[in-house]
Every structure is written in structure tokens, then in C-alpha cells.
Simulated scan of single mutants.
Amino acid sequence: MIIGELAEIIAIPAPDADVWSAFARRFSELVPGTKTLFMANDRVADCDIPLVQFGFDKGLIAEFATHYGNRNPWAPFNRQLRSLIPERTEQRLPASSFKHTEFYNDFLPRIGESDAATAMKIWNGDQRNAEFIVHYAAARDTRLNTLLDPVLKALGPVMSEAFASLRIRMDRERADRRTAMVEAMVDPAFVVAKNGKVLAVNAAGEALAREAELVRIAAGDKLEVLSTAAAQAVAEAIATVVRGDRLAAGSELTRLGAPGRTHTITVYPMMAHLGAGFGLLSPSEACVLLIVRPLLQTAAQPVELLRERFGLTAAEARLALKLMGGGSLPEVSKALGISYLTGRSQLKSIFAKVNVRRQSELVATLLSCCGWML
């Protein structure tokens, strides 16, 4: 009965976060005394990140994501999980074995009767895994696992298939957004992966590549910049983004071309090393957006273009441009010589005029609607 009801919740194709939350909640209701958590194991960042959960205090989960995930003594236990096989912490790494740690003395007491767990890897990716964890009091370990073990083994294939389906959907949606973004641009635009592969290109970019005078798309869909110095600049920019170092968005990366036909290559970093939510399970391949512009166009005044396109004031346009460079609102406000409260007020007005609700949406909209002008 438990298995059938839980399997039915995630039986729909590519269940979203709300469906997984409902699954976590219903699991804890059907197995009293448990708390449930879906978590991503990031092997690149070497940390564990919660996805959705039920039964834990949200503030404590946030602390885990920002602090204790990097201090979790159970991390080695999580790394060695075998696919679709439930594993018990009390058998492999009991909490009593790390009583001297900050995690045991500060974090565990606050989450309440959750000093043991049964975990199972339900999805395995190139850089990240996903696991389902059932937490409970260590005193109930043996008794609870007479139920948990067969239930998890039966649900494992269903959860694994649902996660795989979710990843396929996220990849497709992400590719569609990349295509829509570059197609909205007038100048040649290329979304490039860290290995140089072109993931999206607009009609102007395809035409420029066919000319094969400045750039071309070579074997394996690799972007080839036909200037040694410019190619090196692009490679260095990609390496910078891959390392996680800051690269100023919208900056002129390099110039190429012959006298009278000089172009600039402008770069926008796109790679998110950890991402958010279930996006963690399907990290974006996109590394940078490269826009090739005739040098003459760079003389345009972006502040005026934003004022005309969205009705922003000059101050709002300057703030929006700074935010496109990748800085936070406090950093940008300080750079512009205004208070944080003034910056927040201007940003609220910008959101209303551009019809977005978050900074990430603002940057994406400015790129897709007028990135070619900036």
C-alpha cells in the first residue's frame, strides 16, 4: 500500500519540485517518526546541497546549505552510496563516531531526533549524484529499517526513472531558452560550452561563420576564431569562467578583422557552478555568450538605448548596466556612489518597467531584448 501510493505521486513524466515535495511529505506521513530529504552530492564543489525536504526546520536546512554541508561527517558515507541500494548510517558511520565535531554538537541537536538515517542513491550524473535520505532517531534504527529497506528498494527504480526524465526535460528547456535568447539578437551571437562547442547560434552568427573570415564553426561544432590573439583571448575568458573567477559581463574581450572591417567580441559569462534547486542535477553546458559586433556599433550609448527601450531614468539605466556586469546590488550601489536603499528603490522601479521580479530575470531580459546594443 505504501509503495503503491508513493509511486503514484511521481508516476507523472518529469515531476517538478512541488511533486517531489509532496512525495517527501507523504513518505514521512506514512512512516511516522521520519524526516525526508532529497539531496545533491556535488563532486566538483565537494559538498552536499539539499533539494527538497519535509520535517526539517527551513532555517536549519538553509544553514546546512551554506555552512554545514561542507562540514558534514556523513559526506564520505554519501559519496560511497551504491545506486538503488539503501544504506544505514548506524551500520556504516554512526553519529557517535564523530561526537567531537561541530556538526554533532551544534547542528544535530537542533534538528531533533534525526541522528541516524537510511540513504539511497537514486540518480548518478557526471558531476553530481542525487540521493533520497530518511532521517530518524538512532534508537529506532533496527525497527524502522524492517519497513524502510523493502520500501526504498521497491521505490528506487521509480524515483531513478523520474529523475532521469526530469533531467531530460530541464536540458530541453534550457536549450530552448538559449536559442530564444540568441535569436532575439541582431549581431552575430554564439553560446559556447567550456570545450568550445557552439550550443546555440543565431542567423547572423551562422552567416558570419559561413563567410569564414573572422570565425567559423569547425568539426564537432567547435567555434574557431580565425585570429591567434583573439582565439587566445576567448580561450582565456572561458578558462576564467570555468574556474569560477569573476569576468566582467558585457566587456569587450578582443578585436579582430581587417582595417575598415574591425569587429569586437563581447563576452557574457553564463556558467553557474552550483545553480539552484533541481538545476543542480543538470548543470548547464553553457559557459559564455559571445557577441561579434562591427566596431562602429560600440559607439552607441547604452544608457540612452535602455532609456528608450524600457523607459528607464538615466540613474536606473546606469544601475541596470552595472548589474549586467555581475555585481550584487550593494556592490553596484557603492560603485555608483548611491546608498543601498536608493539602489534598492531604483531596482524595484526597474523591475516594474522591465516586467521582471528577480535580478537574474532582469539580466536575461536585457540580454535577449537588447544585449546586442549593450
Rank of each mutant, 00 (worst) to 15 (best):
A17H: 15
A17L: 02
A17V: 07
D18V: 09
D18C: 07
D18W: 08
V19D: 07
V19A: 08
V19E: 05
V19H: 11
S21K: 13
F27M: 02
F27G: 01
P32Q: 02
G33T: 02
T34S: 04
K35P: 04
T36F: 03
T36Y: 02
L37M: 09
F38E: 06
F38A: 11
M39D: 15
N41I: 14
R43C: 00
A45H: 08
A45Q: 13
D46E: 15
D46F: 12
C47N: 09
D48V: 03
I49L: 11
V52F: 08
Q53V: 05
Q53K: 04
F54C: 03
F54K: 04
F54G: 00
G55D: 08
F56S: 00
F56R: 02
F56Q: 05
K58Q: 13
G59A: 01
G59I: 06
L60S: 01
A62I: 03
A62F: 08
A62R: 11
A62T: 12
F64Q: 15
A65W: 07
Y68W: 13
G69C: 11
G69L: 04
N70F: 10
R71V: 06
R71H: 10
R71G: 05
N72R: 07
P73C: 08
P73A: 07
A75Y: 12
L81R: 04
R82V: 13
S83R: 10
S83T: 05
L84G: 09
I85A: 07
P86G: 12
T89S: 11
T89P: 06
R92P: 03
L93G: 07
L93S: 14
L93N: 03
P94W: 09
A95M: 05
K99A: 14
H100G: 12
H100C: 06
T101R: 01
F103G: 05
F103Q: 10
D106E: 09
D106N: 13
F107I: 02
L108A: 12
P109F: 04
P109L: 05
R110P: 05
I111L: 10
G112R: 15
G112L: 10
D115G: 06
A117K: 07
A117N: 12
A117V: 07
A117H: 05
A117D: 11
M120T: 12
K121N: 09
K121F: 11
W123T: 08
N124E: 13
G125F: 02
G125P: 00
Q127Y: 15
R128L: 04
R128I: 03
A130W: 07
E131W: 09
I133Y: 04
V134G: 03
H135E: 00
H135C: 04
Y136N: 07
A139I: 10
A139Q: 14
A139D: 13
R140K: 13
R143K: 15
R143C: 07
R143A: 15
L144I: 06
T146R: 14
